[in-house]
Every structure is written in structure tokens, then in C-alpha cells.
Design a binder for these strands. Sequence first.
RNA 1: GGGGGCGUGGCGAAAUGCAAACGCGAAGGCCUUAAAAGCCUUUGUCCCAAAAGGACUUGCAGGUUCGAAUCCUGCCGCCCCUACCA
Length: 844
Amino acid sequence: MSSDRYPFREIEARWQRTWEDTKQFRVTEDPSRPKFYCLEMFPYPSGRIHMGHVRNYAIGDLLARYKSMRGFNVLHPMGWDAFGLPAENAAIEHGVHPAIWTSENIDYMRAQLKRLGISYDWDREVNTCEPEYYRWEQLIFIRMLERGLAYRKRSTVNWCPSCQTVLANEQVEDGRCWRCDSEVMPREVDGWFFKITAYADELLAWCDRLPGWPERVLTMQRNWIGRSEGAEFDLAVGGRPGIRIRVFTTRPDTAFGMTYAVLAPEHPLVDRIVTDAREAAAVAEFRAEVAKESEIERLAADRPKRGLRLRAEVVNPFNGAAIPLFLANYVLMGYGTGAIMAVPGEDQRDWDFARQHGLPIIETVKRPEGWTGEAYTGDGVKINSGFLDGLTVADAKRKATDWLVKQRLGEAKVNYRLRDWGISRQRYWGAPIPVLYCEACGMVPEAEENLPVVLPRDVQISGKGGSPLASHPAFVNATCPACGGRARRETDTMDTFVESSWYFLRYCSPRYEGSIFERAAAEYWMPVDQYIGGIEHAVLHLLYARFYTKVLRDLGLVKVDEPFTALLSQGMVIKDGAKMSKSKGNVVSDEFIREKYGADTGRLFELFAAPPERDLEWSDQGIEGCSRFLNRVWRFVLTHQTELAGAPPEAVRVHGRSGGAVGGGVSPHPTSDTGRAFRRQIHETIQRVTDDIEHDFHFNTAISAIMELVNALYAFESDPDGRVPPAERAPLMREAVETVLLLLGPFCPHITEELWARLGHRESIFTRRWPAADPEALKKKAVTIVVQVDGRVRGRLLVDVDAAEDRLRQLALGDERVRPWVVSRRVEKVVVVPNRLVNIVTRA
RNA sequence: GGGGGCGUGGCGAAAUGCAAACGCGAAGGCCUUAAAAGCCUUUGUCCCAAAAGGACUUGCAGGUUCGAAUCCUGCCGCCCCUACCA
């Protein structure tokens, strides 16, 4: 089978060596040329490149090479998101040090990437687990600390009782630890936070100013930030003049329907309200019960709403009514004020709870005719609402809020779902947080001249009992940078999402030692013009990176407001209907594909099989087809090498020049109909491929257009009817072949580079400009017009381009294939679309 | 519960006024001692002996329009995200 395949192994190795030896993809700032920063999300060095990576990098390489051929100065870097838990797991399971495991994986994966032939500037490689990298992150941490953007607090986190560590939200799968499958429990822990909520408004506002991003990613970010407008006000507790309960609501208009109020079980006021010993015991029991609820129970959609009625009552300030006060598991301390006014008439959760506890329900919005539902959340006229009666919901909200302000009870308030970013990890393999705890001075940041705080190598990693750093005396016991006394070093490390929040900035000047990056380099390259990565980072990484960029901007380090101008979210690579994974046994290895078909074929298939944003179903037959296509290209050039070599070279116009051909060649002007039609197809293909890449990333249709041109090339060559004049043959074939190679180059760089050389070119094909369609060649003399009768195709007309509407109407009505459909009917109307169709509308 | 997306041949997918480009698969043929590779033809369904021709067809039901896979409404199915967010 493979015996007749072109020698991809040899040519791929040779060109990779050439590109590396000549440093072909090394770039530097060049203010005389427009820049293009093309970036794929850098990988975690898990061990092997998989097909999802290949897809990601094939798309990036295509765009990078294409933009370069269009004259841009292209920055296309690669690096490693090298901190993370899998390295620690490997240490636990196999006794390999995380640093060694990581660095071996990086070496292996770098070699794999080089064999894919991606056009990276490898001189800019970045590795986030090196002190030269994370020292800048530590410096920024200190700056953030100074500005109150980094702070320490106690909070409830996901705790795995078996692994004895905190898990990030994304490491909890269906309420279980992704590593050991234990049920995750909530737990109070001290930790460090970044104040991303300070940027909530800006992050949200800029969602409307990122037209290069997919709408669904922006929607997910908007939902995640979750801005809601409402009001906050105080409820007095009956008989307890010193105590006021602050509640947040988005529906102040419904306040007259408040029939009870609820505190989150862990609300701090509970202890002040409850004084009786017996009630306090009941509260403690209720709290324990709720705290025991595991993540799994919390995720259950129909989780029962548990509540405990307190003896105290609160007063509805709107109507003076005394109403019961509850603790309930459906009110969360982490959102709003941790307390609510309950309006069962207009809130389904309150409705459920009220029914369970026999509480009254008051309707404050008139239901629509025939309403049969429970709580009503729609619009309508206010009823049972005192001074709000008769108003619409929107007007009543405004009036109720104004009233609260006037009474000095509350105010309008905006709340966000977004929480501050918890960055503490009780783990070893991460960047140390540069803070100390001094016996005399308290918490003190490490002195800048002492940075980096280097992660020590000689640790015992057991996976049990918290961070290994805590049991490393040489690391923990340190000197206070403020007073010189004894201090204990922070042993938490930073979430690895911090490293990936600024790596794209470090790429601008990766070896610069003076600062986090060189200002001029970042000003030249930033922002990233095209970012490409998986949809799974739609919120987390992309939101964190946006936040971190804004922080760096406010620290005066960078000028841009947003890091990524355009984003392409590629779909997953699927096999047998499921994401490829070891456990499912449906993994196709990049090495196997490269060995069997070559890198060019693998890349071509991944770009051809589906548009990039959609999931891609792997197909063993599909890749055979791509292999066959490249062999067809190869065979054509080799079998016609002599004939092609004799034709004038580079009779192809290039973008950015107004006329003529480059390199002394002559544009062929065929006189035969076949020759003219063929040349038109060559130039239509240029136009179509350019549009497909440029406008909507439809690489699959771009490839099919190139395939059609190759099919046409074979047909033109065989010329069974002898209609091509001999003088036109070789020049047109050469123009077609060179066009195919130039258009295909960014998709399949090795084979095109090789064939380009075999046509006699001395320079790399990637130093050539992208071809431009010749308007002369695109001109058509005649077009086929479809004639419809009542919307059905009944005939076709071959007419001059831009024929007059009157003439089209006449020809259509007179056409003998059309007449039978019209003859016994009355012509009502004739719709003419120039150069496209005529539709004759009739009536009996 | 909320938000978003998708539904077209046997399959991956094209198509903003001619539905099914391109590729895969399948069937038949050529080449070959044979195979591989390659090449050629056919390939949505139905009516008709066939051709010519015609009818039907983009999840289902409606609507807008001269004209709808495409726009609108409702329903069905699948996928993703999110989740007691007050």
C-alpha cells in the first residue's frame, strides 16, 4: 500500500533541518513592516502530543505562514505550561521528580512538534517552571499586594479528604476528586486571592468590544461575570434594636410580597440573634447537617430545601409586617449579602420553600390570563403592593429603590456572580508565593532583590498531608526582609493559571532580564492578533489572561487593554463519537500517523475534515484520501518536470503589486477556449482560497478548491479532444502547478517546499508572496442564467455577462423549454436577477 | 431550572436565488500473469421498460417571500456550558 507513496520521510526531515539551520522563522521587531502575532495556546507537557494539539498547531501554522506570505512580520512562538499536578502525581506513582518528569516530557514533545514542521521561532521558547520565568510573576504578585489586588482570606474551598489538599473547581468532576475519586467536601481554609472582581465591570464592558471573538465565548464570559442590578436594604429584627439584616434583591418591586426572610446557615449574625442555649444547639445541628452535604448532593437538581425557623422575627420595612426568619440551605453566604427577603409569589425557590413550610404566598404582579404556573417571574401590573400598585415591574423597581434611599434603609446595588480568583494551592509543583510571616512584623512580602523565591528541588513528595514545602525546614525557616528576625515562608504555591495569564507577553522578549518583558518589544508585538485554542478555556484561562493584562496595564507596564484581538475556538478531535482518551482506548497517535502518511498528510486531514470551530470526527479512510491527493500533486510535478521546467517560471501575479509577473516571467494569455477556461479556474481558485482563509477560516473549502484545481490540471493535461494549442500547454500547466504549490504551502509545507525546489527555484517557497487573482483572467464572456417558472428550474440560458434585464426577460419567455410551462397560464410577474436567474410567476 | 449551539445522501461535509461542491465509502470497468498503486464510469428517493422527461427531498408542523437548507413561530431530537446567584 505504502510502496507508492511519495518519499515524505526523507523530504520532511530534510526541510525541517533546512528551516532550523537557516533560522528561517526567527523574527525580530521591524517597524517598517506590519506585524502579526499568531499564537496557539501552549500545552501542558503531559508526555505526548495528541491529535487535538496537532489540529491546534496546524491551524496556527497555516495562518502564520499565510500571513508571512502576505508580507507580515509574523511572531509565532511556542512554550510550555510546565507547572501542574500531573507532574506531582507522576512523582507519587513512579518516584520521578516532577522537574525531571516535566523536562523529559518537554524534550520529547518539542521533538514531536519539530517533526510536524510548525514554523515556530524556537529561540523564543518559554518554560514556566523555570525561576527565570516565574520570578516576574512573583514580582507582579508583590505589586498586586501593594495595591490590594492580592489579599489573604479564609474561605470555603473544595477539599479532598483522601489527598489532603485543596482542589480547584476545574479539578472537581461531578463532585468527586479527579485523582482519587473521593467525594469532595467543603472546607474553610486560609488562602490567597486576586481581586478580579475589581475588574468585573471592565471585563464585562469589553465583551462588547471584541468583535474578533466567537459570540458563544463572549456569552459564556458574560454569564460567568453575571452582573445583576438590584437593591440592598436592612431588615430590623423584632425586639433586637441593635441588629439589622442586610438583604440583596433584584426585585425590590416585590417587597410587599415578602412573607419570610432567610439567612445563610453560616451567616455571622446568626450567633448574635440566637441567644437561647436550646435554640443555639438546634442551629449547630442544622449547620452541621448542611455542611455535611457533599458536592454531589449539592449538584442534585431537586435537592430538598431544608430550613430551620428561628425564634426571632424581622420587620418588612415596606408595610411594617412582622414575618418569620429562617436559616436555609438554599441561601449561600458567598453571593450577595448571604441573606434574602423571600417572595414566594414571584420566585420559584421561595415558592417551593413556602409550600414545604406552610408559609403564605402573596401575589404582587397580576398574572396573565389563563396562568397556571406557580411563581410568576414575568412582567405585569403591580397589585397588593401599596404605593407601587398599578405600576409596571420596571417602574415599580425604580420607585421602590428610590423609596429605600429616601427612607435611608438601603440603596441601588450591582452584584456579580464572579468571585475573586483563589490562587493558593497546597501543592509543591508551582510557583512559590513570595510572602513571609514574621514573628514581629506579621505578613511581609519578600524583598525584590531576593527574588526569585526558588522552589527547592530536594523535597519528599508523598501526596499526603499537605504541601511538601511545609515539611522542608530550609525553605520554611527564613529571615524577615523587614526586620531581619525569624520568619516563616508561605508554603502555598500559585495556581498554574497565573503563569498562563501572561506568557504571551513574555514571548515578546523571552530572554530579557531587566523586567517582566521589554517595553518596546511588547509595544511592537501586542496585542496577539490571532489566538487559537480549545473551547474548554472559554472562561477560565481567557478570563484570567484578560484580567492579568489589565492589571499589568494599570501597573504601567503595557499599553493594551485586551490581550487577544481575535480568537478562534477550535472543536475537539473525536473518534467513535467520543473525545480521544486513554481510558476509552480510542487514541490515534501523532507518531503513527506521521510514520504512515507523513506530517503534511496528517495536517491536511485535520484541516480538511471539518471547519475548525466544529468537532472533528477522526477517519482512517479520510486520511487515506488526503494522502492520495498529495501523491497526485507529487506525481504530476515529477512526471511533467521537464515540460514544466521549459516553461517561463512564476507567471503568477502576487498580492500587493499592480501588474505584470515577478521574476521576468510572462503571464500567459491563452487564446483557446479551453486554455482561457483553465486559466480562469486557476485564478478563481486563488480568489476562493484567499477568501476562505481570510474571512471565515473555512480551510476545508479552501482545500476542496485546491483539489478541484488539481483535478482540472489532470484533465487539462490529458486534453483528450486535442483542443489545447501546444504553445499554451506548458505555460498554463506551470502557472497552475505553481499556484497549487503556493496555495497549498501553508497547509502542507514540506511537500510544497520540495516540489517548488524541483521546479528550479532556489529560494524557499515561503519567501514568496501569496498569489493574487488576475482580474483579466477572471473576466467571463458569458454566463448561464437559470430560468424558473413559479420557483422551479425549467431552463437555462447562455448569455453575455451583464445582459440587460429586458433582454433576459425576453429570452426567458421565448425559450422553448420554458414555453410549455407558461403557455396555458397568465404571466403575473417576471423577477430578473442579473447574471443569476429569471423567475416567471404565473397564475392559472 | 437558566444560557448557547446543532439537525442536509451510506459517512465527513458544501451551498445566502440551480440542494448535495470536495473527500470518503460502495458498485462496475480499464491496466496487470496476479496483486498493489493508478485511471475511467455510476452513486439522494420515487414514477417510467429505457431514454427524454417529471414528481419528491435539507428533523417535524406552520408562517413570511416571486423564491427558504438559509429568515420568523411552535414542537421533537442530540450536544456543550452553567447551576439554589436571590
